[in-house]
Amino acid sequence: MQPDDTDRRLLRHWQSDPDLSMADLAERAGVSASVAWRRLEKMRREGVIGGVRARVNWRALGYAVQVSLRITLEKTNPRAFDEFLVAARTIPEVNELQTFLGRVDVRLSVLARDMGHYQQVYREQILSLPHIADLEALMHVAEIKNNTALPL
């Protein structure tokens, strides 16, 4: 499916305010509520819209530390990548896991309540992950921009 201008208007307004009622979304996009609903349903069916998620403020829940770990894996074992990913997925404090092509193979984002909690997770769980050849930790200081919306 290739979204047209109406679809893009609907998506643009919905991304900026996902709590809009269908009537308000339709009004902002310049269409009727029934057209808006049909268009959104069609985009869901065709995979343009994959779901709606709640963004939880982890700091408000007592998590004060975020660390990004850049990991290079051993290249001698053909199963290293798969075995690492299976093990990393089991760590509850890992909230993001990305793979890359290049010197760094994997990036983990780890959330912890404080530095003591992070050190415990690092020592007991991260360092026990299989096939790590090199690891670099980057302490999150400030979030300057976090925009998941597409420029439609």
Rank of each mutant, 00 (worst) to 15 (best):
M22A: 05
L40V: 09
T76C: 00
E83L: 13
L97A: 12
R55G: 02
M115Y: 03
V141R: 09
W58I: 15
V48K: 03
D134P: 00
R8N: 08
R123Y: 03
A33V: 08
Q98A: 13
M139C: 08
S32C: 06
D17P: 00
S32G: 11
K145R: 04
T148G: 02
S128F: 09
L152Q: 01
L85W: 06
H140Q: 12
P151M: 12
G102Y: 03
L129A: 03
D82I: 13
V141W: 08
I144D: 01
E93G: 08
G102L: 10
E96I: 12
P18M: 07
N57P: 10
H131A: 08
K75R: 07
R59T: 14
V104Y: 08
G51T: 12
M115E: 06
S128L: 11
Q66N: 09
A87Q: 06
N146T: 14
S128W: 06
E136S: 15
R55T: 07
R70E: 08
G50W: 04
R113E: 05
R103M: 07
S21A: 05
A88I: 15
G62K: 11
P92E: 13
N147R: 15
I144M: 08
I49F: 01
E27Y: 05
E143S: 14
Q2A: 10
L97P: 06
L150V: 13
A36R: 04
R28V: 07
R44V: 14
Q2F: 09
L135K: 13
R103H: 07
D105V: 15
R123T: 10
H131E: 06
A133D: 07
D105K: 12
L129S: 02
S68G: 07
T99C: 05
W58F: 15
N146C: 12
V94T: 09
R9F: 00
L135E: 09
A33W: 02
P151R: 15
D4Y: 02
N146Q: 15
H13T: 05
Q98M: 14
P92K: 14
R38D: 00
R89G: 03
S68E: 09
V94D: 00
Q2N: 12
T6H: 02
A137I: 12
L73F: 05
S68T: 12
K42Y: 03
V106N: 01
L73C: 03
R38S: 03
V110T: 03
Y122E: 02
P3A: 10
P18N: 04
A88M: 14
E93Y: 04
E124Y: 05
R103I: 11
R89S: 07
L101I: 13
E96F: 14
L101K: 05
I49R: 03
H117D: 06
L152K: 01
A149K: 11
H140Y: 13
W37F: 04
A88C: 15
Q15T: 13
H140M: 14
L11M: 06
A137N: 09
K145M: 00
E124F: 07
D19Y: 05
P18S: 06
D24R: 13
L135S: 10
Y118S: 07
I49L: 10
R45L: 08
V56S: 04
R103T: 12
L25E: 00
A54Q: 10
D24T: 11
V52H: 02
R44P: 00
Y118I: 13
R53P: 01
L138I: 11
W14K: 02
D105Y: 09
I71C: 07
E74D: 14
L127F: 00
